[in-house]
Amino acid sequence: MASQILPLELIDRCIGSKIYVVMKSEREFSGTLLGFDDFVNMVLEDVTEYENTPQGRNSTKLAQTLLNGNNICMLIPGSEGPQE
C-alpha cells in the first residue's frame, strides 16, 4: 500500500503542465493546468476547445478558463490534445 497514490494527487502533479480533458459529451479541451478543486473544476490557460460534430472538428482558442468539473469524463496528463 506504500505506493498507493490518490487519483487527484496525480492531477495535482500536472499543475503547470499540459493536460487534455475529455468531456462526457463530444467536447474536449487542452491547455495548461493552473489549478483545480475537490469537484475537479479546473483552471486552464492557453486553452483550445475541440467540438466533434458529424461535419468535423471545430476548435476555439480561449484564454484563462474555469472548466466546470460536472461534465468532465477523463483527464490525460501531459497530452497536447488531438494530434494532426
Binding site: D12, I15, L34, G35, F36, D37, N41, M42, V43, L66
Partner: peptide
C-alpha cells in the same frame, strides 16, 4: 494542498 495559487477560487 487544499488550495493553491491558480485554484478555481483564485481565478
Amino acid at each position: 494542498p487544499p488550495t493553491h495559487v491558480g485554484s478555481p477560487t483564485d481565478f
